[in-house]
Amino acid sequence: MKVININLSYNSDFVSQVEEESGQKLNLCYQCGKCTAGCPYTAEYDISVSQIMRLTQTGQKDKVLQSKSLWLCATCESCTARCPNKIDVARIMDVLRHMARREGYTGIRTVKTFWDSFLNSVRSNGRVFEVGLLANYISHTGRFWTDIGLGPKILPKGKIHFKPVEMKGKKEVTKIFMRFKQESAK
């Protein structure tokens, strides 16, 4: 196991950035583990949420942003709801995810691709077009068998459309995404 030099490895810019973007104070965390205890996704995480909190508190930027856990948090808010120190842990997870994206981490490819496909669908159509989203996801992941078995079950129920529902203002929505891209590039 690697020996960590606590002062040399402490990335203070990272700590202050997380605090600023999340509006949370990391030193409030006393590592009771209640977030981890309640997190339904702990079984899937490579680093438990309380340890993400600890690593963030100690400024271990790379280790945190590399974590797969960031991509598996569903923002179910059980950590936030039960934190004895009233830390909005879910918001910190969200902010770490934003930072991971900006720094080019993929985390879990299928998850990132799914979220990207979803947003692509919203960008083009103004609303989510489920078949289009699935097609986009499959073309990017090669997982052509994804939920294929569900087809016969839901097709006859009229729950699936093969054309996006038209809405007037979809260009307005597209523009939101375009402006966001420009702002982020700044």
């Binding site: 583990g33 209640k34 981890t36 438990s48």
Partner: peptide, 12 residues
């Protein structure tokens, strides 16, 4: 009873 073992780093 669902808790955490922070020394183990696990949900228990």
């Amino acid at each position: 009873v669902r808790g955490a073992d922070t020394l183990m780093g696990a949900q228990v």
